[in-house]
């Protein structure tokens, strides 16, 4: 039976009714209607559902929704504000780091969490950091390029 659950999503407390067996991903999509996080496999293998849990990238399909009640949850919908896109989002647009776009919210969340902790990455660091994200369209060239550009941009504006 669905049970009430308050989650702090993108800085906002949301009261939701959630089945005990729901993953955080199901909860975000079906209940909070934040559909930017994608279900590519529901097995933790593709990374399309990546969100930040207390700043760390996690596959939300492998998190029990009810266990996340004391965490700060950041989804793709929480990155841009009225002033515009986040540096990572902007870099993906400018460097053509996206095609079909289904893996992109997950990749952007992985990159965002990674760059917060690693402001001066090498290209190899970036490739390791997105090792949990599958993309079938881009071949990763422009994704890596975008993340490196975002890192530079964030360092300059820091």
């Amino acid at each position: 039976m669905k049970q009430p659950l308050t989650l702090k999503i993108n800085g906002e407390n949301r009261l939701l009714l959630v089945e005990p067996f729901y993953s955080l991903l199901d909860c975000l999509r079906d209940e909070a209607r934040l559909t930017g996080s994608k279900k590519g496999c529901d097995e933790g293998d593709c990374g399309a559902c990546t969100v930040l849990l207390d700043g760390k990238p996690v596959t939300s399909c492998l998190v029990l929704a009810h266990s996340a009640h004391d965490a700060e949850i950041t989804t793709i919908e929480g990155l841009a504000d009225v002033d515009g896109l986040s540096p990572v989002q902007k870099a993906f647009v400018e460097h053509g780091g996206l095609q079909c776009g289904f893996c992109i919210p997950g990749l952007i969340m992985s990159a965002t969490g990674f760059l917060q902790a690693n402001p001066e990455p090498t290209e190899e660091d970036v490739r390791f950091a997105i090792g949990g994200n599958l993309c079938r369209c881009t071949g990763y060239n422009r994704v890596v390029e975008a993340i490196m550009a975002a890192a530079a941009e964030m360092r300059e504006s820091a």
């Binding site: 933790g44 990374g47 990546t50 849990l53 760390k56 990238p57 996690v58 596959t59 492998l62 998190v63 992985s110 969490g113 990674f114 950091a129 090792g131 949990g132 994200n133």
Partner: peptide, 9 residues
């Protein structure tokens, strides 16, 4: 082990 997102859990 897996990828970062799974290692974080």
């Amino acid at each position: 082990f897996a990828g970062v997102q799974v290692r974080n859990l």
